[in-house]
């Protein structure tokens, strides 16, 4: 952080940006919190967002998040399978 900023406020701003981003991704891909459960979705999304700044649109963000959760989320099989299915479906031939 450049000098002169209030670190506490920057932390609050960063948290607000992550939460808003998670809200929007949940709107364009409501299957994600449905598959993962709301609390787990929020937790995993926050971890993903810390490492992956938003670069393009929210549909791609949803797909990137799903890939991240599959690779690093330590998900039980019962959640991995529907998440994987959702991702390949979204990546499939239909327009996105």
């Amino acid at each position: 952080m450049p000098p002169g900023f209030d670190p506490e406020r920057v932390r609050i701003q960063a948290r607000a940006l992550r939460a808003k981003r998670a809200d929007i991704v949940a709107k364009v891909a409501p299957e994600l919190p449905a598959i993962l459960g709301e609390a787990e979705y929020r937790r995993l999304f926050a971890a993903y967002a810390l490492q992956h700044p938003l670069r393009a649109n929210y549909r791609w963000d949803a797909l990137d998040f799903a890939a991240h959760a599959l690779a690093h989320g330590g998900l039980p099989r019962a959640r991995r399978r529907p998440l994987k299915r959702w991702r390949s479906h979204r990546l499939g031939p239909s327009p996105r």
Binding site: L17, K20, I24, L54, Y58
Partner: peptide, 10 residues
């Protein structure tokens, strides 16, 4: 720097 979207008004 890589481009970054804030997704919000700053």
């Amino acid at each position: 720097l890589d481009p970054v979207e804030a997704g919000h008004l700053l």
